[in-house]
Simulated assay, not measured.
Amino acid sequence: MSTEAVPLSAQTLSFKELVFSDYERYRPGSTASWLRVVLRLPSLPGLLASLVLRAQQVLARSGRVRLAEQLRTLGNVLVGADLGPGMQIGRGFMLAHPVGVTMGYGVVIGDDVTFAGGVTCAGRYYEPQGDEVQEWATIGDRVVVGAHAVLVGGVTIGDDAMIGANSVVLSDVPAGAVVMGSPARRVGSRGPQEEKTA
């Protein structure tokens, strides 16, 4: 996967900057600090999941993959989310309800993305054979993914798209599209893209 698809913020921001950007999604207009983050952890399980995910992200980025993999179990125990290390996630990621969220190792997510509960970003193959290469989803900026949606393989989700609850995404989703169903099909548009396509 080329680094062009990876958000610059995922490559360069520190653990603190990433966690604080996530906190600001939960508490818009509030100034982030470690004290405020810690005080909100008991009532915001998504923020607790964010701490684990961001620690994994920064550790994997620095080459400490084994330690990042060990945090995967911590995420499962604390919030019921299975977070594979090696994901590249931009600033302001919001896990509204982290229980049941499963994300694979190579997922790339842009800025200000929201996941509801039970979202799965899965590889297309459980055990790649021969020339098969495991691919993971690439998700643009400001995307909303509804509860229990499944993104399969190397699909690309464009900026400002919305994936409906319980949808199964097997192919790319254009920017600004609203998709639903199994398999997911376009049912509408949202965001700035709506004006361009109207």
Rank of each mutant, 00 (worst) to 15 (best):
P7F: 06
S9L: 04
A10K: 02
Q11Y: 10
L13M: 14
K16R: 13
K16Q: 15
E17N: 11
E17Q: 09
S21I: 04
Y23R: 04
Y23H: 02
E24I: 01
S30K: 15
A32Q: 04
S33G: 13
L35Y: 10
R36Q: 15
V38C: 12
P45L: 11
P45Y: 07
L47A: 02
L51K: 04
R54D: 15
Q57P: 02
L59K: 07
S62N: 05
S62I: 13
S62H: 13
G63R: 12
R64L: 15
V65R: 12
R66Y: 06
L67N: 03
L67I: 14
R72K: 09
T73G: 10
T73R: 15
L74H: 08
G75L: 09
L78I: 04
L78G: 03
V79A: 05
G80R: 07
G84K: 15
M87Y: 00
M87T: 09
G90H: 05
R91D: 09
R91F: 05
G92F: 04
G92D: 02
G92M: 00
M94Y: 14
H97N: 03
P98V: 04
P98M: 09
P98L: 11
V99K: 15
V101D: 03
T102I: 08
T102W: 02
G104M: 08
Y105M: 15
Y105C: 12
G106L: 10
V108C: 12
V108S: 06
V108T: 08
I109H: 06
D111T: 01
D112K: 12
V113C: 05
A116V: 05
G117S: 09
G118V: 03
G118P: 08
V119M: 11
T120M: 06
Y126P: 01
Y126M: 13
E132S: 09
E132V: 12
E132P: 06
Q134I: 12
Q134D: 04
E135R: 10
A137S: 01
I139H: 04
G140P: 07
D141Q: 11
D141T: 01
G146P: 08
H148T: 11
V150L: 14
V150N: 08
V150A: 08
L151S: 01
G154K: 08
G154C: 07
G154N: 05
D159V: 02
D160C: 12
A165G: 06
A165Q: 03
N166K: 15
S167F: 05
L170C: 12
S171P: 14
D172N: 14
A177Y: 03
A177D: 07
V178A: 03
G181S: 09
P183D: 12
R185D: 07
G188I: 01
S189T: 15
S189N: 00
R190G: 00
Q193L: 03
